[in-house]
Simulated assay, not measured.
Amino acid sequence: MSGARVLVTGASGFLGGYVVPELQRQGYEVFAAGRNTAALTLVADGEHCVPGDLVSLRTRDLPMDAVIHCAALSTPWGPWKDFREANVGGTGHVVEFARRNGVRRIVHVSSPSVYAAAHDRVAIREPDVDRSNRLNGYIRSKIAAEDLLLEALDAGTIPEVVILRPRGLIGVGDPSLVPRLLDVHTRIGVPLFDGGDNLIDVTAVENVAVALRLAVTEGNGAGGVYNISNGDPRRFRELLTTLLDLMGQTPRFRPMSRRVAWAFASALEGVCAVLPGRPEPPLTRYTLSTIAYSQTLDISRAQEELGYRPEVTLDDALATVAAHLRASA
């Protein structure tokens, strides 16, 4: 489908900023949509920039062959109404844009947060989702957004839908994962559970961009769902030690009990939920589910049906991020 027209939502964000050039290198005509006009101009020329929020897409006439929907509110804490508006309502706006403009396929960026649980989960396959998961508003909204897309597919509003669930994005420009871990490391030391032997899956952002590009033409358009990771699970302690060593920092770990930490996070959430402004707790149950327990993804379906192969190794990704952070310090 080289030469096809593809709209990327959230193109001014972390992931979208990698997806646009990946598509351009493969000969697609790419339109970059997002709220940050200055950031859009860094990845697309003026006529291919679509500034504005997702609401503005509803009435825009801009025929496309496909939409890659990266835009989302991604945070472990916040009011449900904010997640509903951004992630469920926003996806609804994309569906309306697709209907209005004859889009053949929506490729939706969901999240493996939908698998979050307070126990070890290894080699998780795509159907292994508790769709009643209410651990936080983000998870709830990502499940609801997937359901909305599948309902639109069943109703014939959209001809094709493909859903990707990429795990733990890392790369230059990452606003969340690595910065949060480094902040905790600097302030109090990184919490360590069961010696840090729990397995963690992460993904180089460049590999996610490749997977999304493949999903424009490959995979099951009748609602196919695909896990994406680097396929290289590491023990949590090993992963953090590698990154910190590359940055020239001495690892500082703080051993903790899972049971005590979970009770503490629950209490913090309860307190913060009633404080003015509902500030984010310093520790949430969702964060614990990602760092205190093993969680790895089975990516065999993406390998078989999308032809996905990680192009950037985890070690190379960590080295690149560490070099960038050291140069920026």
Results as ranks from 00 to 15, higher is better:
Asn207Ile: 04
His324Ala: 15
Gln24Met: 15
Pro51Gln: 09
Leu153Lys: 02
Ala329Arg: 15
Thr313His: 02
Tyr115Arg: 00
Val122Met: 11
Asp197Lys: 08
Gln26Thr: 05
Asp174Pro: 13
Ile170Gly: 02
Ile170Asn: 05
Val55Glu: 15
Leu15Gln: 10
Ala33Thr: 06
Arg99Met: 12
Leu268Asp: 12
Glu269Trp: 14
Leu15Asp: 10
Ser111Gly: 13
Pro251Leu: 09
Gly189Leu: 04
Thr287Tyr: 08
Arg100Tyr: 07
Val202Tyr: 11
Asp128Phe: 00
Val184Phe: 01
Gly168Cys: 05
Thr37Pro: 00
Asp154Thr: 07
Arg104Tyr: 03
Pro79Lys: 13
Asp65Gln: 13
Pro76Lys: 05
Leu177Ile: 14
Asp183Ala: 14
Val208Ser: 05
Gly89Asn: 07
Ser111Thr: 15
Leu15Pro: 09
His185Leu: 08
His93Thr: 01
Trp80His: 02
Arg99Gln: 14
Trp262Ala: 14
Pro76Phe: 03
Ser12Ile: 12
Pro233Thr: 00
Val95Asn: 05
Arg234Ile: 00
Arg309Asn: 03
Gly307Ile: 12
Asp245Val: 09
Tyr115Asn: 03
Arg309Trp: 10
Tyr18Ser: 02
Ala71Val: 06
Tyr115Phe: 15
Gly248Pro: 08
Val109Gln: 01
Ser176Thr: 14
Leu42Trp: 00
Asp82Tyr: 08
Gln303Glu: 15
Thr242Ile: 12
Gly156Ile: 13
Val50Thr: 01
Tyr226Phe: 14
Gly78Glu: 10
Asp53Glu: 06
Gly17Lys: 05
Asn220Val: 01
Gly52Ile: 07
Gly92Cys: 06
Arg131Asn: 02
Gly168Ser: 11
Asp61Gln: 14
Asp61Met: 11
Leu15Glu: 10
Ser56Lys: 08
Val129Ser: 13
Arg100Glu: 10
Leu182Glu: 11
Arg259Val: 11
Leu288Tyr: 09
Leu288His: 08
Arg167Tyr: 03
Asn136Met: 03
Ile291Ser: 08
Pro63Gly: 01
Leu40Arg: 13
Arg125Leu: 05
Arg99Trp: 00
Asp45Pro: 15
Gly223Tyr: 12
Asn133Arg: 01
Leu243Trp: 07
Leu148Tyr: 02
Asn136Ile: 01
Val184Asn: 01
Glu206Ala: 15
Leu199Phe: 11
Leu73Asp: 11
Arg35Ser: 05
Asn101Pro: 08
Leu268Ile: 12
Pro282Val: 07
Ala322Phe: 14
Leu40Asp: 13
Asn101Val: 06
Leu192Cys: 09
Asp197Pro: 00
Asp45Phe: 10
Phe236Gln: 14
Gly223Ile: 10
Leu153Trp: 07
Asn101Met: 08
Leu199Ala: 12
Ile291Glu: 01
Leu243Thr: 03
Gly10Ser: 10
Leu212Gln: 03
Ile291Lys: 00
Arg180Leu: 12
Gly173Val: 04
Gly27Thr: 14
Ile228Pro: 03
Arg60Asp: 06
Asp53Thr: 09
Arg301Asn: 03
Ala116Val: 01
Ile158Val: 15
Ala152Phe: 11
Arg35Gly: 07
Pro276Asn: 09
Gly224Pro: 13
Leu182Met: 14
Pro255Trp: 09
Ile291His: 01
Leu153Ala: 06
Leu240Ser: 04
Gly270Met: 12
Val312Pro: 08
Ala155Leu: 11
Asp232Phe: 02
Pro279Cys: 07
Leu288Pro: 02
Ile124Leu: 15
Val50Arg: 01
Ala302Tyr: 09
Ala302Thr: 05
Ile200Gly: 00
Gly137Thr: 09
Gly231Asn: 04
Tyr115Ile: 00
Ala44Tyr: 11
Gln295Cys: 14
Val50Phe: 02
